[in-house]
Design a protein around this nucleic acid. Sequence first.
DNA 1: AATGAATGAGAATTCATTCAT
DNA 2: AATGAATGAATTCTCATTCAT
Lengths: 210, 210, 210, 210
Amino acid sequence: MTTPSTPATDGPPQRMRADARRNRARILAAAEEVFAEKGPSASTEEVAARAGVAIGTVFKHFPTKQDLLRAIMKDLLARLTQEVDTLAGDGDPATALFDFVSGTVEQAARKRTVVGLLAESGAGLQLADSVQLLRQGVEGLLARSQRAGAVREDVRPDEVLALLTAACQGALSAGWDRDLQRRTLAIVFDGLRPPAWRTGADPAPGPRDL
Amino acid sequence: MTTPSTPATDGPPQRMRADARRNRARILAAAEEVFAEKGPSASTEEVAARAGVAIGTVFKHFPTKQDLLRAIMKDLLARLTQEVDTLAGDGDPATALFDFVSGTVEQAARKRTVVGLLAESGAGLQLADSVQLLRQGVEGLLARSQRAGAVREDVRPDEVLALLTAACQGALSAGWDRDLQRRTLAIVFDGLRPPAWRTGADPAPGPRDL
Amino acid sequence: MTTPSTPATDGPPQRMRADARRNRARILAAAEEVFAEKGPSASTEEVAARAGVAIGTVFKHFPTKQDLLRAIMKDLLARLTQEVDTLAGDGDPATALFDFVSGTVEQAARKRTVVGLLAESGAGLQLADSVQLLRQGVEGLLARSQRAGAVREDVRPDEVLALLTAACQGALSAGWDRDLQRRTLAIVFDGLRPPAWRTGADPAPGPRDL
Amino acid sequence: MTTPSTPATDGPPQRMRADARRNRARILAAAEEVFAEKGPSASTEEVAARAGVAIGTVFKHFPTKQDLLRAIMKDLLARLTQEVDTLAGDGDPATALFDFVSGTVEQAARKRTVVGLLAESGAGLQLADSVQLLRQGVEGLLARSQRAGAVREDVRPDEVLALLTAACQGALSAGWDRDLQRRTLAIVFDGLRPPAWRTGADPAPGPRDL
DNA sequence: AATGAATGAGAATTCATTCAT
DNA sequence: AATGAATGAATTCTCATTCAT
């Protein structure tokens, strides 16, 4: 009741033999690849094969398939969070925000990343904590962008995250080539800008674009 | 992209006994419900049960599960196409366009519609024809909106469809309540408008909004 | 609320195609054999093989292994109940009672019957109804034996059933040959008799014995 | 019956480091608990956990699960043997005999002792030696009881052991509460007594009872 | 000796699909 | 045409056992 965040069953055990840690990492990497390619209904066997371990090893590290999916998503969210934080460091905040969104969508499309999970097993995945961290990063970036006048005052973090996930999932659909991606995001970004900053022109990369 | 038209296994046979036609419809309806509720990994057995027919009947009408999924999507796309065409008839074209998008997203969220299929069974679904019809409807609506000056000249149909599917898939994610939906779409719509029409204000429903 | 006994999930469906009924019976027979030979931890695969059906067929009829085990036990109990009822018809009730116990133990030993289940999965098997029927049969036989003066007045049905199951399970242990069985039961039967009827002698088959 | 003595894999090694001996004991204790609670199909991992050692340690001491089961049974039999021998020392031999049986059954019920093993892993357990020791103890007690006239002359040790194991296994079945236990054993004990000693009355605890 | 990670052969169960009725 | 029983490959998960640390 007094320790608010981290659930008991979460994350990798802290003390772990070197070989175990190595295998855990290999399994996670393999799983990300496999699920990225074939969606979350890909078989655990294939993950094991790709990781070069026996099936039992996968289940030792992640007792159920759900656990494995959750772990991947946590990893992904953590990586995104770190990217936000990094981008937040340098230069123009709005550029950072838009770059972050573009980059994430780009990556989602290229690696057919696991974002698609959210659709399928989403609800059951209990990722509140990790999402919260990402949200905080986005919140910061958004606030600074708004202070700089580059994003409309009335935009809320919720909306940015919603646009982000929507775009990521959309990017998995057939027909989203890089160009369509860029043009679609340009529209979204323009919707985020205050009237004064609007391009109104063909969304060719300008100082505030992409 | 270049393969022109109707594959062999497509569409319902033209000559069909009345009861067979009735069954086909019931199966499609049941399948839409079931897959909407449980995702595309729901079992064909459950579809049969919900439709009140035997499993064999389902496979008689749709020789593989993929065929069933494809048929549902074709149905859905046809319904959307019809809605676009209807909306195109009356009044302000931009209102019609935005209403169409809002309505579709709304419905996707409410019925957890099968749009999520695209993620799972992805490319395998060969829906080019049906999508093409929908695209034409959207194209018409978009062109008229642009002629009326309510949508930026440089927006292309691709982008509208991309935004539409992205928003639909996003709407399936956890946490998209109706309000978030409305606010997110308001941003997107603002991005579609030419500078002169922009709200720049809190996306409360105005003449140009939602 | 008004139909007291039979639970919903119980027993075979009433209407069944002939081939299905045939398979159901073959599966039950095979299962009884297999579990008798190897105990309840024998694999469902082996049951399927012995029955000459595919594994899926077994699970179609009995959705879980537990269901299969329960069905066997119900069958067995029903058979015993019928035997009690039959024996109750003819002649001397005490002879009938003792014969029933002897016969059941004998059969348990010979077929290594599934009685052993009670030990392992016992608790979870929900057989109250079937056991109740058997108990009623035994009750009747016991009451008549007592009225005839051949069994002590103070013996209760519970005790007879307890002695029955104990003997059946004991009969599965190593070393219970037919002779030991007979001698052990003779002691038990003597304990059931009123002093006047006691043999006190070597339990060779006499008029009241075995 | 004719194979005389100790197999190779039997019993604890004579020379053992103190900690090893301690571990061996803890494993045995844990295993008895675990198998008592969950039956012999409980996992070796759980035994290790309960004992507070690593799984490898369990297999170091008991190369196969069978070995572990056998060791537990040997322990149990040894304890019973010792109890017989102790009881044999004091007072009335028949009381001692009946007390021994009652106590053993009671304990079997309470601790769900491992006796049930016999059903599962059955014959494979090679315990002849240990059983032999127990049998000798029972033989002695029985002989003295018979000499004292409190047990029928024609009863043989086999029968007493058979009744003992049957009652123990029966006591594991659902529904054997302490009262039923007492009443059932009272019947058995009465069957063991010579006619002169019989109670014939309700098996309330009397001088010759329980 | 002890540890605990890895192994991999099963086990139960599901489900798309086929086919006899 | 419809039925629904049967099929059997695939999947998730378990666990006794081995072996590197």
